[in-house]
Design a protein around this nucleic acid. Structure first.
Length: 646
RNA sequence: GCCGUUGUAGCUCAGUGGUAGAGCACUUCCUUGGUAAGGAAGAGGUCUGGGGUUCAAUUCCCCAUAACGGCUCCA
């Protein structure tokens, strides 16, 4: 007999070799039907795998992330079985479960054949058939040699490649129905649990994620224990689509793209420009208070400067090609730093001038590959909340900390609660190619940054091979309301460019010394940040950011003069106000204004005119009662000034 | 850049081998209406661009281009 400890601390005795499924059955049949997998001593196992010794056991169902992941992984196998029956001879690579977006995929080599959208329906049908058979997922351990023989017999170079990295004794196979695959597992008990299936898309994916390799066919899907859950999932996806910044950006008149202007080059419409200007106002206030100085620089520069900076050759792939002028090559700037360095260098500097903080909302142009462009999130023309801090080694920690604090201040204003700072390091294997070849400086600076992060108690993770070409950086990862993750901003340490530009200041010992440089852009770029905000607020911007803050809605034309009078008073208080002077009924005016997400609607009719009042309506919240015009203005002005998020 | 899908009115989308349709938006008129769509009439399209097949192409084929879903790459 062995002792099984359940999560509530209860200890039960079973015969050795008992399975999690048996244990579930001994508790209740209903539970047994729901069990997908089991956590045995912290490790996720098949629910049907025999347990030989005393163990801590947690039964995993759909309510557990690991249960869902197991479910989707098994669904990938089920899909593979269906694919094999429709495309005999197909070779499979890997088929993992995905947490975000939910579901699974399987990468496969179809040879000369092509899979189309119509095939997905066929495959779904096949999967349902196989699911109804309720075939068990059967685990089998296999010696390496036997596995090698099996796959070389099949001529399956993909699985042989996987086997090459596995040691004898850790090789397992899983079978269900007519399908057998090399797989670590675990799997759910049987295919019958997979009741609702949706194959979502076909895409190309490079083998092992390397663009030099062959492109495999990847099929994405998602599955659930019941149709109801699938429907809910699909509804959620529909909701997410409504918050997509590309859709909202069009509906709210924020930005547009035009084929004649070019891909990745957004045109900012009047409404979007208001938001840009409010963000810049915030940045200017914040930066001036933090001792920054503002500068303005040209959008282009000569080749020689980018040779000095190292952008050429390290960053050449991301720059627009050169323009020839008077026998010189000029480049559009992809970053503002070189220009700022030249400003630092314009006059001799003493340690008394440091730290020097130069800020600019700089316009940069980057040649992003066509397939990478994505709404406002990835563009070719961007406006960066950029600044460079030139400081001594002694000042570095304090300056770096102050930058982190600025991030936190912004996060608070915008209500950004979920974020991670990612310390991005160099990859020693790519020194001299992707990274400036200064191995010791890399290590030294990386340690410096790590230490500051630890000291300032900011939560962070480390990633190799993500650094800038001139130094380590901290990428700030955030998640939009619809679950899209992206890098909002970076905060970089630069030990290379100071020397490359021969920047120096005179230290207290009257000796020249190279300053350390911090690159920082807490608000990232207007493009990405406003794209984020659109999704974050679902287009319902807080009052201070709203393109139109107040819309005055006269009940009928008779009250237009009074509406104009209210508008004038609002504008005198620097409130962005408009009158809806269309010949429409009040219900229509309210509907259209609601859809444009204007924060306040002021309905004015006979009663309001006589009382010098406005009937206030808050977007999304309905009628809020009448107020004297002055009282409304006072409250609105305060809400704007404090940049309240409601 | 690579794989796949798509491109029809300002927007969202039907549709057809015989040179096009709806709803919303727009214009004009009627209506002056109290918290999410009042009514009528009208105007609006080189069916993404180029080439091919055909008596005839928006429709079929090829190329280009852009967007979208991924891969790779990045703020």
């Amino acid at each position: 007999m062995i002792n099984i400890t359940l999560p509530d601390g209860a200890v039960r005795q079973y015969e050795s070799g008992v399975t999690a499924l048996d244990i579930a059955k001994s508790i209740s049949e209903g539970l047994a039907r729901k069990v997908l997998a089991a956590q045995v001593n912290g490790e996720v196992w098949d629910a049907s795998r025999p347990i030989q010794q005393d163990a801590q056991l947690k039964l995993l169902t759909w309510n557990d992330t690991d249960g869902q992941m197991t479910f989707w992984h098994s669904s990938a196998h089920l899909m593979a079985e269906a694919v094999e029956s429709v495309f005999p001879g197909v070779k499979f690579w890997v088929g993992p479960a995905l947490e975000s977006p939910k579901g699974f995929y399987y990468d496969m080599d179809l040879g000369d054949r092509k899979m189309t959208e119509e095939d997905l329906a066929t495959l779904e049908k096949k999967m349902h058939e196989l699911s109804k058979q309720g075939n068990a997922y059967v685990r089998k351990e296999m010696p390496k040699q036997e596995a090698l023989n099996y796959f070389s017999g099949k001529g399956d170079e993909y699985k042989l490649d996987l086997l090459a990295n596995l040691a004898d004794g850790e090789i397992t196979f899983y079978s269900q129905g007519n399908f057998t695959d090399l797989c670590r597992g675990p799997h759910i008990p049987h295919t019958g649990l997979i009741k609702a299936i949706k194959l979502t898309s076909i895409a190309g994916a490079y083998w092992k994620g390397d663009e030099k390799n062959k492109q495999l066919t990847r099929v994405y899907g998602v599955s659930f224990p019941s149709q109801k859950e699938l429907d809910e999932h699909l509804t959620m996806l529909e909701e997410a689509k409504k918050r997509d910044h590309r859709k909202l950006g069009k509906e709210l008149g924020i930005f547009t793209m035009d084929d004649d202007v070019g891909p990745g080059l957004p045109l900012w419409l009047p409404n979007g420009t208001v938001i840009i200007e409010e963000l810049e106002k915030l940045a200017k206030e914040t930066e001036l208070a933090a001792g920054y100085k503002r500068v303005v620089t040209p959008h282009i520069a000569k080749e020689s400067m980018y040779l000095t900076s190292g952008h050429l050759p390290y960053y050449a792939d991301s720059m627009f090609p050169a323009m020839e002028m008077d026998g010189e090559k000029y480049y559009l700037k992809a970053m503002n730093c070189p220009h700022h360095h030249k400003i630092f260098d314009a006059e001799p500097k003493s340690y008394k001038d440091l730290p020097l903080r130069l800020a600019e909302y700089g316009t940069c142009y980057r040649y992003e590959q066509s397939g990478e462009l994505f709404g406002l999130m990835r563009v070719r023309c961007l406006h960066m909340n950029d600044a460079h801090i030139y400081c001594t080694k002694e000042q570095f920690a304090q300056e770096f900390k102050a930058v982190n604090e600025m991030y936190l201040k912004y996060f608070k204003i915008f209500g950004i609660e979920k974020y991670v700072m990612r310390l991005s390091l160099h990859d020693p294997a790519k020194l001299g190619q992707k990274y400036i070849n200064e191995p010791e400086l890399w290590l030294e600076t990386e340690e410096l940054v790590r230490q500051v992060l630890i000291d300032t108690k900011v939560p962070f993770v480390e990633v190799k091979g993500e650094g800038a070409f001139y130094g380590p950086k901290i990428d700030v990862q955030i998640w939009s309301a619809i679950g899209r993750e992206f890098t909002l901003a970076t905060n970089q340490v630069d030990f290379a460019q100071g020397r490359r530009f021969k920047l120096s200041f005179t230290n207290q010992q009257n000796q020249p010394e190279v300053p350390l440089i911090i690159h920082r852009a807490p608000l990232g770029t207007h493009e990405r940040f406003i794209g984020f905000l659109l999704e974050h607020y679902a287009g319902r911007f807080p009052l201070w950011l709203a393109p139109v803050q107040v819309k005055v809605l006269p009940i009928s034309d008779k009250f237009l003069p009074y509406a104009r009078e209210v508008e004038t008073r609002l504008k005198q208080a620097d409130i962005r106000a408009e009158v809806d002077d269309r010949n429409e009924k009040i219900g229509k005016k309210i509907r259209d204004t609601e859809l444009m997400r204007v924060p306040y609607m002021l309905v004015v009719g006979e009663k309001e005119m006589n009382e010098q009042q406005v009937a206030v309506r808050r977007q999304g919240k309905g009628d809020a009662g009448a107020l004297a015009v002055d009282d409304f203005i006072r409250a609105a002005v305060l809400e704007i000034k404090e940049r309240k998020s409601e």
